[in-house]
Design a protein around this nucleic acid. Sequence first.
DNA 1: GAACATATAGACCGGTTGATCTACCTGTCA
DNA 2: TGACAGGTAGATCAACCGGTCTATATGTTC
Lengths: 193, 193
Amino acid sequence: MTARTTPGPRERLLDAARQLTYTQGMGVGIDAILKSANVARRSLYEHFGGKDGLITEVLRRTAVVDVAAYRTTMDAAGDDPRARLLAVFDRLGEVADTPAFRGCRYLAADLALADPDHPGHAVTREYREDVHQILEHELVRLEHPRPGHAADQLQLLVDGLLAVAATRPGSGPAAAARELAERVVDEGRRAPA
Amino acid sequence: MTARTTPGPRERLLDAARQLTYTQGMGVGIDAILKSANVARRSLYEHFGGKDGLITEVLRRTAVVDVAAYRTTMDAAGDDPRARLLAVFDRLGEVADTPAFRGCRYLAADLALADPDHPGHAVTREYREDVHQILEHELVRLEHPRPGHAADQLQLLVDGLLAVAATRPGSGPAAAARELAERVVDEGRRAPA
DNA sequence: GAACATATAGACCGGTTGATCTACCTGTCA
DNA sequence: TGACAGGTAGATCAACCGGTCTATATGTTC
């Protein structure tokens, strides 16, 4: 029941690694992370076994947070599934407008971790499955004729939005993606046969 | 007029770097490139001044090739602007199905090159502008009401397609992207007012 | 043949990488 | 008091990084 005023070395490491791997990429040196976290070298290996373990745990943590953010965003939009889905794109537009935005962390991780056996890949894959399920769930509630397919399309729009926002800032990708998302969501609504 | 049977060191370097930076990422060591190209260390610095120069030149070369590929693909689809635009997505679907496919080289470069002043970023930016212009040109021919905006959307679909293909292979992103591309292209065609 | 540009081969540099190690310090609990 | 877990500090390691260097070989061209 010790109420720590300062997070322990483990949390400090995760936080520093989360920030530095995003701003500097997966190639950041361990020394930079240790220095930023103000943590002894040994503690890293005690807690995570090495750099790969630390990176993987960072991805796991952020994935939990980001999946929760999807749900929070949708809950704030009310009960209507259509509004809930479109709110995701509005929210991503806000995030992408942040000066600190540097693209999708999970895509960057998959592209940067050349080794296909790196445990980080499994984490990113699971993250995408979670997001897909969240989107599909709303589409089912909408009685969308092809919820799985539509979820694929929405996820493609999300990835496209994040990629364009990272590489062509100022082109307003969020609005463009939202327009297309509306058509996906509204598919087969008032159409005959 | 010497008809070389083997490309010179410069071409061998560019070719090896093109392959290795794609399969291994921008973090590949110079030694690996030199060994793969079977080129002396010094030649790299004579021709490109260093690793950054080599990488930048690789991006410049592949950008020329890839922009030409857009035109070739569209020309093979005939004269109709609609068919020409949709052919791009069919072609990208083929490319993404290649076992060697590892995502968009230019997006990976922008995400991996942490230094915002790296000359490679200017090359990728110009590449995207070229692609945008190609798409917009066809949309103008189509008398699309908002050719610039539609080109933005098509480019977003391209980026999303390549990202999904790299991270969720087998989910058929090409077909999903093509469907949405059709709606973008057909926007305001038979609609009144 | 001499001069020259262009290769190659490889030693070498300082710096950094991820990882392992010892030594010491500081709480907590028995 | 004493043991012990968990933290810090920092030396040390082999390997590799990008880059510079010398020496040598191979052409081509005056």
